[in-house]
Design a protein around this nucleic acid. Structure first.
Lengths: 340, 340
DNA sequence: ATGAAAGCGCTAACAT
DNA sequence: ATGTTAGCGCTTTCAT
């Protein structure tokens, strides 16, 4: 292996000068030239581990995600990696899908000097104790998702509440008054914020909240929900879902029950993916900018690392409603159809 | 920071003994106990960068992917990470989507001692020269995808050819004789192997190859292809596509032209995702086990790293045909319908 | 079984 | 502007 000493020898100077040269210090023009020539000639590359050891900085940021095979998560990773790379950082990636560790377990990466910062991207509800532990740890950490209201930690999240309120407005503008809601799993942190948005939105527009059902975020969950909704024989002209697969299943079940979407019932949802975009009818939804979430988290982390910022910040990213074919004007006919 | 010396002091021994103890060397029972107590008491964690410096091993494997926001790729990453983690390795992830570097640029990661091995996962056609350079580099490298027939480098790929042949058989069994083929972009390495599979499969079953069109792998590409296919007024009872989005667009266009799938025309494709699974009709396809591809590449890389295996291996993973609703029996009526 | 000593490749005072 | 020196925290001979 060719080291700094070899370069020094060949350039007839000392290794400290070479080091200085490498790090942009003040070096005489002639010396610099000689050093650069030597570097090229010997094809020298600085040993990154020696640097890390002596500087106690790794230029590595770690990111832990629940399950990266999930389309949404992979976008986050993409965003993080892009920003990190631009800043000369490298990403190491940990998935929790394999080992079911808790997020706090990853704090050991700091103790071993393995990373300069950590992005924790769980969409599960976090327990307060874990958050507190992360907050007091003192190392650069950014949370994506639920921060449990703890203001001592940096976090980035989507404004699930506002996104849902925007969707209520959309339905309200289309003349819908009776809107049912399909809530997601308790374990997922955004379920609650979205429900909040629904309840708040309904109130905001002077509407009485409709039936609220809870189901898992699968196609089957959506189907089940609609079946039980229809069985209740309560009037509704629109159904708000909180997840793409859910709404796809819901639409399926509505059609099976002889209802047309959006003619009889409008359906809107959350998350924009292949299903929402390309199935028939295309689904009105709230798009979360996952890549931007990752990028934002990365920038936030880098600023903590490099500027040792002391102020904690919580960033809420606003999602946007994408209007598609599954939502339409509420019609008298539609109401009747559902009343059966 | 608490170091090995602090432990030695507290345990009243030398740092070499502590090191030995840490690395499973021979240490007296009493000493070991004292050391372990000290470690716990001081909450000691070995400095990973010091270890890496002195051992010149990082236990890091790098993976570079074209674009990780792609669903398929993220599965590969998932597979790699899982296997790596089990072996006590960590993954650093590089995307080529951002900077348009060539794969050979990543060789510098070795020179700086940044990684122990590299998995290169491009689905582009690689140029021979790059492959040769990677092959002669001497560092542990595994290619995913196209290895350009170079036998001096390790690689993992899906058997695109066989997968396509299997699909020809499927159509043949359903009675199809006139089968058109929609080829993918030249730049993507699997396009060619799949086309090969089609041509070979047709020959295998004594069929005359039908029209072969080339299009980009988008929904619009599929639509365009079908329009031009229909314009040619050539008889075909089945269309083989080489990509999920492509086939979805193709089916759309066929229907727009008043043809029923599969009653009039059967459609099959390659790659299994949300579109193939959940759109109407669901699409018969060849599923690539992406997670397994990643896992296999990782295992292969680890064996090179740890056992310094000298023999290069090329692994071909067999994909499986998933039969769905878009392919059905060829009927006389169907043929007529297309002849117009 | 244990300790002393050398050194991995680099950076950063400090002196010149 | 440049060289000398002292580490960073660890592993690994080589003695004992």
């Amino acid at each position: 292996m060719v080291t700094i000493v070899d370069i020094a020898k060949l350039a007839k100077t000392s290794k400290s000068t070479v080091s200085r040269c490498l790090n942009g210090g003040i070096v005489g023009a002639a010396t610099r030239k000689a050093i650069e020539a030597a570097i090229r000639k010997l094809d020298y590359h600085p040993n990154i581990n020696a640097r890390r050891l002596v500087s106690s900085k790794t230029r590595i940021i770690g990111i832990v995600l629940d399950d990266i095979s999930n389309v949404y998560y992979s976008q986050i990773l993409c965003g993080v990696q892009g920003v990190a790379a631009e800043a000369g950082y490298v990403c190491t990636f940990y998935s929790r899908a394999s080992g079911q560790k808790s997020e706090t377990d990853y704090l050991k990466l700091f103790q071993g000097g393995e990373v300069d910062g950590l992005i924790l991207g769980t969409f599960q509800v976090r327990n307060e104790q874990s958050i507190a532990q992360l907050a007091t740890d003192g190392h650069p950490i950014v949370l994506i998702g639920d921060s449990g209201g703890n203001s001592n930690i940096d976090s980035v999240d989507v404004d699930n509440r506002q996104g849902t309120i925007d969707e209520v407005r959309h339905l309200h503008e289309l003349g819908h008054r009776a809107i049912a809601y399909l809530k997601g799993p308790r374990a997922i942190s955004s379920s609650k914020s979205r429900l909040d948005g629904y309840l708040h939105g309904m109130q905001l527009y002077g509407l009485k909240p409709g039936v609220v059902l809870e189901e898992e975020w699968t196609i089957e969950g959506g189907e089940r929900a609609v079946r039980s909704l229809l069985a209740r024989k309560e009037r509704f002209t629109a159904l708000m879902c909180s997840n793409e697969h859910n709404s796809f299943g819901a639409i399926k079940a509505l059609r099976n029950a002889g209802l047309r979407v959006p003619d009889d019932i409008s359906v809107v949802t959350f998350d924009d993916g292949v299903l929402a975009q390309h199935t028939e009818p295309s689904i009105t939804t709230v798009r979360q900018p996952f890549r931007a979430i990752g990028g934002t988290a990365a920038r936030q982390l880098l600023s903590i690392i490099e500027e040792a910022t002391s102020a904690r910040t919580s960033i809420l990213i606003h999602p946007t409603v994408i209007t598609r074919a599954s939502s339409g004007r509420a019609k008298a006919g539609a109401r009747k159809a559902v009343r059966r």
